[in-house]
């Protein structure tokens, strides 16, 4: 009996189905166009979904607790700009010259964390809807990113090594892949093996249980916002390095891309369990879809339409699967 349910569980697990969809998409594109199924193209796909995956790791946790963060895109842009600014100009106001990369990186991560703190304060202390709070912060962040260098890009005067983490490889493996891999591993461990992940699930899934078990939801949500802020800042540093310039317009619409990736990955907006792996596959699906449709030379506007259909279809499928599982369990429960 137990074995049987385990097998069944594996087959109907949303993440597995998502993976099948991913495989099917790849097959489809591979058969449709000779330009798709290439190792170099897959390298691109991973490279292009790097930021979504890295930030998505944090957002998955946030959404597990029934929160969300719309400020990640502008946080990313602000970090990209501030990082570039610090390594090129330093802090002119304090008479500090160009900073070394690591120092600028640390400052940027702190700023990203502070944006997380701002989100968290609004959500937990002032009791904002996460949607509204992070929307406000999104505007502020975008404005500040643009204001950093009067709306212009920073593209000269970078020190040596600026572009290394975003472009170079070690033993043939791009640094970006290593970061993504680390992020996935670290957050999977956080999810499965640490208090933070477990408590995040508990809060999103059953507030009462969390309360009676003596958890402090506010503190956990605050931590998650800070982590997400730092991740967005880190993605900003990577973006700056990858683009080899500081671009204040980068990351426009990024927040919704991440949101969609996390949703596709099976983390519902209403909280509860999600999986990092799901988010990763969700991010890959989004990227593969864009990449493959481009390779097939499908008009961009059809791609937007497909995006909408797939989003709604996937969520409907998810909710049906969930309902099906639940009903099956209830039926099993009453029989027992």
């Amino acid at each position: 009996m137990a074995n049987k349910t385990n097998k069944l569980k594996f087959l109907t697990h949303p993440t597995f189905i998502l993976f099948l969809v991913f495989v099917a998409l790849n097959l489809f594109f591979a058969f449709s166009t000779p330009r798709f199924f290439k190792l170099s193209n897959y390298m691109n796909i991973i490279r292009q979904s790097t930021m979504i995956m890295i930030v998505g790791c944090g957002c998955t946790f946030l959404m597990m607790t029934e929160s969300l963060d719309l400020s990640v895109g502008s946080n990313l842009a602000l970090s990209c700009m501030v990082y570039s600014f610090l390594v090129v100009f330093g802090i002119p106001g304090l008479g500090i010259g160009p900073l070394p990369l690591w120092a600028a990186g640390i400052i940027v991560l702190i700023i990203g964390g502070l944006i997380g703190v701002l989100n968290a304060v609004l959500v937990t202390r002032f009791d904002f809807e996460p949607f509204i709070a992070t929307l406000g912060v999104m505007y502020i962040g975008r404005g500040l990113a643009l204001a950093t260098f009067d709306g212009k890009s920073i593209r000269t005067g970078f020190p040596d090594g600026f572009e290394v983490i975003g472009n170079d490889s070690i033993l043939g493996v791009p640094y970006l892949f290593i970061f993504v891999f680390l992020a996935i591993v670290i957050f999977s461990i956080l999810h499965k093996k640490t208090l933070l992940g477990k408590h995040a699930i508990a809060i999103g899934c059953n507030k009462n249980a969390a309360f009676f078990s003596g958890l402090n939801p506010k503190r956990i949500v605050t931590r998650l916002y800070i982590i997400t802020g730092c991740l967005a800042a880190f993605a900003g540093i990577l973006t700056a390095s990858r683009l080899e310039h500081g671009d204040p317009r980068t990351g426009t619409g990024f927040e919704f891309t991440v949101l969609v990736a996390v949703l596709l990955g099976g983390t519902p907006l209403s909280g509860g369990n999600g999986t990092i792996l799901g988010t990763v596959i969700g991010a890959l699906i989004i990227t593969v879809l864009g990449n493959g449709l481009n390779a097939m030379d499908i008009l961009k506007f059809w791609q937007i339409v497909f995006k909408g259909i797939i989003l709604i279809g996937a969520i409907v499928l998810h909710s049906q699967l969930r309902a099906r599982r639940r009903n099956a369990l209830i039926a099993a429960g009453t029989k027992a």
Binding site: K198, I201, A202, G204, N206, S213, G214, N273
Partner: peptide, 17 residues
Amino acid sequence: LNVVDDLTTEENLTLGK
């Protein structure tokens, strides 16, 4: 019911402690 559906038995047993 104050169990968290999305956790395993073990995780539920230790939740909060």
